[in-house]
Design a protein around this nucleic acid. Sequence first.
DNA 1: TATATTTGTATCGTGCACGATATAATGAAA
DNA 2: TTTCATTATATCGTGCACGATACAAATATA
Lengths: 146, 146
Amino acid sequence: MDQLKLANQICFPVYAASRLIIREYQPHLDKIGITYPQYLVLLVLWENDGMAVNDIAHKLILNTNTVTPLLKRMETLGLVSRIRSEEDERKVIVRLTAKGSEMKVEAAHIPFSLMADISPDELKMEELLAMKNKLEEWIEFLKRKG
Amino acid sequence: MDQLKLANQICFPVYAASRLIIREYQPHLDKIGITYPQYLVLLVLWENDGMAVNDIAHKLILNTNTVTPLLKRMETLGLVSRIRSEEDERKVIVRLTAKGSEMKVEAAHIPFSLMADISPDELKMEELLAMKNKLEEWIEFLKRKG
DNA sequence: TATATTTGTATCGTGCACGATATAATGAAA
DNA sequence: TTTCATTATATCGTGCACGATACAAATATA
């Protein structure tokens, strides 16, 4: 094997898998009218409502200049409210609306449907979990050095 | 266990890792003036010059409506030529220009630099290779069903 | 041969994703 | 308290990424 190309060989599969997985999410998310990044924001807020823009960006490892317009679109959809904090007027606090909260019920089936969609018989659950753990280890490293 | 928690999602680490890795490529690619998807197209053409748009898209698991404008930008940069095939006038054959070919020399160091950047001591080479193999197995499954 | 279907590429619109930059609020230092 | 650096968010421009759609060339079918 050509060791020189190891980096390319390891990085392309991550990039390709990411897009393929998001493609699998899409039909499920279409039914409730949101995108994958919007779904991620909802996951974060369902777990801890009322976060600042920066905290959401940090959770999702995204830049704030990606998250700000994303949240504006979600505000237009009626999923969240964006209200400037009174204690610190630099911060904008993002809260779920009733619609945004209630969408959790509609989305409850998605992780289960997804696992059925994306988990091949050849790849056992333990293998996926092992890969998840290795990726998270890797992400922590990349975040520290970035 | 709450399935709707970010930490419990298997797909988010793949999505996040993909972006973090591309961020690591960026400074290296900036030096030669291309983006990560453009670099992938060059990798494909360096290996097999003179491919149709569709074949490049298939190799990169991208839609042609992503690849067409990508190739047009690369044509503007003087990296490739796009010439309609004479045997089959539906096809557009993409070939490296002299500049595109020669860029292989400038890019030769990137896989080395990248491995130094992205490979933490905690994650051994064999573990990265094992993850690569699992991801490729997964990708094959997702491609088949998509 | 005429018609229908498939194939290959391109166009359009929307939504990320991010570097560069701007701006106001906060906090620290002189 | 004035000045300076930092923090939090927003704006702008460029480049993907993809669904929907269009269209011409090639192929299959009647």
